[in-house]
Simulated scan of single mutants.
Amino acid sequence: MDTSASFLNSLQLVSDDEAWNRLVGLYSPLIRGWLRRFGAAADDVDDVTQEVLTVVFLRLPEFERQPRAGAFRSWLRTIAANCLRDHWRKANRRAPAVGGSEFVQMIDQLEDPHSGVSQLWNREHDQYVIQYLLEEVRSNFTPQTWRAFERFALEGKSADEVSQELGISVNAVFIAKSRVMSCLRKQGAGLLDE
């Protein structure tokens, strides 16, 4: 994969099958987890996840990145809320959650960008995508570069500590962090808050 292309751009540069597989690989676990946690019936989780991903895939060419951070995340959240509503309307039943109206209220809150549920979606989305991107870009770096980045940027060790531990210069620690962060920013362009 070309690391100069963001995840979103790369979806437009590959075959439909590969783009679909990448989208499913990234977002299926996140969407399924949300549906389960907020009371969706087990039988509905796969169907709704498939519906959300299908809409995202089909409408991705229409998605326009906006100058504001998190535009894709918000767009995905809105699609998820709409698919949830549509799914239960088509089935002509209420969400089979404890206190079914609570689930409907959660869907309403998911659509409201200022609600606590939306803020939680945003935080969890970003944390999840960061972990995914970290795993995706890791193979682009030598083990020593990755370890320097990991110890310094992720574990919060000082540059001096990492330098001594790995037998590299302090400057090399800063360079490792800079290189990995640059790659992550490129890959995550449009997916995450900056």
Rank of each mutant, 00 (worst) to 15 (best):
S115F: 06
D44T: 03
K177R: 15
A41K: 13
N140R: 13
R73E: 12
P29F: 11
R85P: 00
H114T: 14
R65Y: 01
H87D: 01
S158M: 10
E62V: 02
G116Q: 13
G100V: 03
H125A: 03
W20Y: 13
D108G: 13
E135N: 15
A71R: 14
L13H: 06
D46W: 00
A41F: 06
R94H: 06
A148Q: 07
I79P: 11
V52D: 01
A189E: 15
G116A: 13
R147N: 10
P143Y: 01
F38D: 09
F141I: 09
M106G: 06
V173D: 04
I79Q: 04
P143Q: 14
M106D: 04
V173S: 06
I168A: 07
E102L: 10
A81E: 09
L76P: 03
V173E: 04
F72C: 05
D126A: 11
R85N: 12
S158V: 12
R59H: 12
G99K: 08
W20G: 08
A19Y: 06
K157F: 13
G116N: 14
G33A: 07
R68V: 14
C83I: 02
T49H: 04
A153K: 08
D108H: 15
R185P: 00
E165P: 01
H87R: 13
D43G: 10
A40I: 12
A91S: 06
A189D: 15
S178H: 09
L53F: 09
T54E: 11
K186P: 00
E111V: 01
R32L: 07
S101G: 04
P143E: 14
F103S: 10
L191S: 10
M1E: 11
Q50M: 04
I130E: 08
Q127Y: 01
R77L: 02
E62C: 03
Q119F: 06
A41W: 05
L58N: 13
N171T: 14
W121C: 06
S182P: 00
L166H: 10
Q119R: 15
Q187G: 03
S6L: 05
E18Q: 13
G33T: 08
R93N: 01
R59G: 02
S28Q: 12
G70D: 08
E150R: 05
G156Q: 09
N171I: 07
F38Q: 03
R73A: 04
G39D: 06
G39N: 10
S163M: 04
N122F: 00
R151L: 15
L134N: 10
Y128S: 11
M106I: 12
D47S: 05
L60C: 02
T3G: 01
E62T: 12
G190T: 07
L13C: 02
V173M: 05
T145C: 12
F57W: 10
L11C: 09
N140W: 07
G100Y: 07
L53W: 09
E136Y: 08
G188R: 03
S163R: 05
L110I: 09
V180P: 10
Y27S: 13
F63E: 02
L84I: 15
L8V: 04
Y27H: 11
G156Y: 09
P67K: 11
A80Y: 02
D44F: 04
E135D: 14
Q119W: 02
S10Q: 12
W146R: 05
V173L: 02
T3V: 03
A153M: 05
L133R: 03
A159P: 07
D44C: 05
A172I: 01
